[in-house]
Design a protein around this nucleic acid. Structure first.
Length: 152
DNA sequence: GCCAACGTTGGC
DNA sequence: GCCAACGTTGGC
């Protein structure tokens, strides 16, 4: 069992949007970063736990929990010239970008803010709290997961 | 292979 | 809206 953190801008796609999706499930399309791609394609497994993080908003932080319900498969939005995430270099016969499906588990009563996470020495190794970090999908250790869960 | 230019991310 | 940090692109 592995643990992850996935960022989303709430004005694009929030934890509430996920909860309201049919089956409370959504495909995580639009990631155009190779490190994040590799994790979704190769490492994220059905049943893995996910922290849902809101970025680029009034109170950045962890807002909920989700889980992986479908393992890596080609991000079809890359093939669609009308899609904002279109990438002509991704060939359907040799897809460049991958995604997973995640399902809503629960929303936290209160956001665990980025500031709070930064204040915890136990979390100082997380890429999330490192300066300049831009990874939108990142691994979380079991220790970090348990520690953060206890903050909620 | 180097590196400047550029576009994007994301906190503030 | 600003801007630092970072990844990607493309000329050479």
């Amino acid at each position: 069992m592995n643990y992850w953190l996935m960022k989303s801008e709430p004005n694009e796609f929030s934890i509430d949007d996920l909860r309201q999706r049919p089956g409370q499930t959504e495909h995580w399309d639009g990631v155009r970063n190779y490190q994040a791609r590799n994790m979704m394609r190769d490492q994220m497994k059905k049943g893995d736990h996910v922290f849902f993080y809101h970025s680029n908003c009034e109170l950045p932080g962890i807002v909920g929990i989700a889980k992986v319900v479908r393992e890596g498969y080609p991000d079809f939005t890359a093939f669609d010239a009308n899609d904002p995430h279109y990438d002509p270099k991704s060939d359907p016969d040799l897809p460049r970008w991958f995604m997973v499906d995640i399902k809503f588990v629960r929303k936290l009563k209160r956001t665990i803010s980025l500031q709070k996470l930064k204040d915890c020495a136990e979390l100082s190794e997380m890429p999330l709290v490192r300066r300049g970090n831009r990874l939108s999908v990142m691994p979380v250790t079991k220790q970090e997961w348990d520690f953060i869960s206890a903050l909620a």
